[in-house]
């Protein structure tokens, strides 16, 4: 077993990382600055609002958008979070989710549109998406920590990367699924390329895109919890502390907070898609 083959993939990646660190530092700083600003603004804004007002708003949203039963669930669930004294970590997690989702959508939707418009772009992006989705989420933490150190920003970056694929895929899919005659209708009535996108394709793809946004948010939430391992803070941190201290109660409380946030975000974002279709 002399000639055991050893392809040094790990070495190559390290070399690549070094090169990026040496040459792209300003770009990395820019990204870090922007994401930090975004997350902090969300967090600052959400914490500046009194907790009871935010609870009221969320309950109102649940009541109005989903159902009165879900509104009652929201009252109880958010009351529980306040009661467990987890308000601040919950808000921190929520801000991270919102910031990461915003960036993921800002990048992911145009990419999805580009994929829908060109088979070539689709063919080249698809493997990247597959890679992003099958890679274990922990793997993103390493380069994020190397490039951006520890804290909120690398957590947000790892989250953006991890949660982007669904919205890209479903934007692409939604646009490609638009009925041929509907496209022809747009063209036959004089659409140019831009109008075809904004007046026909995007509106008709909206249910699919909304499903993508919903999935992206859910993935962001799951990643934000994991990202607490590199210091992103929030509810994940509560869970992590529970694990480190072998404190089952604390870990469970943190987990419950995540579940509640997940249910609220899921149901509320799903309802946005439905409403648009039924009566916008």
């Amino acid at each position: 077993m002399e000639g055991r083959i050893n392809i040094p993939v790990g070495d190559w990646i390290e070399a690549g990382v070094d090169w990026i660190l040496d040459n792209l530092e300003p770009a990395l700083d820019g990204i870090a600055w922007f994401l930090g600003l975004l997350t902090n603004s969300f967090e600052g804004a959400l914490l500046a609002i009194p907790a009871w007002l935010l609870v009221l708003a969320l309950v109102g949203l649940s009541w109005w958008r989903v159902s009165w039963r879900f509104g009652i669930f929201a009252i109880l669930a958010l009351g529980l979070i306040l009661g467990m004294d987890l308000w601040e970590p919950t808000i921190k997690t929520l801000s991270l989710v919102l910031a990461a989702t915003a960036v993921a959508l800002a990048i992911g939707m145009p990419v999805g549109v580009a994929m829908a418009r060109s088979d070539w772009v689709e063919a080249s992006i698809r493997p990247v998406l597959d890679l992003m989705q099958t890679m274990p989420p922990f793997v993103y933490l390493i380069p994020a920590a190397i490039f951006f150190g520890l804290g909120t920003v690398p957590g947000a970056i790892a989250t953006v990367v991890f949660c982007m694929p669904p919205v890209v895929r479903l934007t692409n899919l939604g646009i490609r699924q638009v009925n041929r005659e509907q496209i022809e209708a747009g063209l036959a009535f004089g659409c140019n390329r831009r109008q075809l996108l904004t007046k026909i394709q995007l509106p008709l793809a909206m249910p699919s895109i909304m499903a993508g946004i919903n999935q992206t948010i859910m993935l962001a939430l799951s990643m934000v919890v994991i990202a607490s391992m590199i210091g992103a803070g929030g509810l994940g941190n509560t869970v992590l502390t529970g694990i480190q201290r072998l404190d089952v109660g604390l870990g469970f409380e943190g987990g419950l907070g995540v579940v509640i946030l997940a249910i609220l975000l899921d149901r509320i974002t799903q309802s946005v898609g439905r409403r648009r279709k039924a009566s916008s």
Binding site: E181, A185, F189, G190, P203, L204
Partner: peptide, 19 residues
């Protein structure tokens, strides 16, 4: 211009915008 001013089209599947 010609399509939007002079030539309209009606489709078998109606092709209306549901939203």
């Amino acid at each position: 211009r010609l399509r939007s001013e002079d030539l309209a089209m009606v489709f078998q599947s109606f092709a209306l915008m549901p939203h």
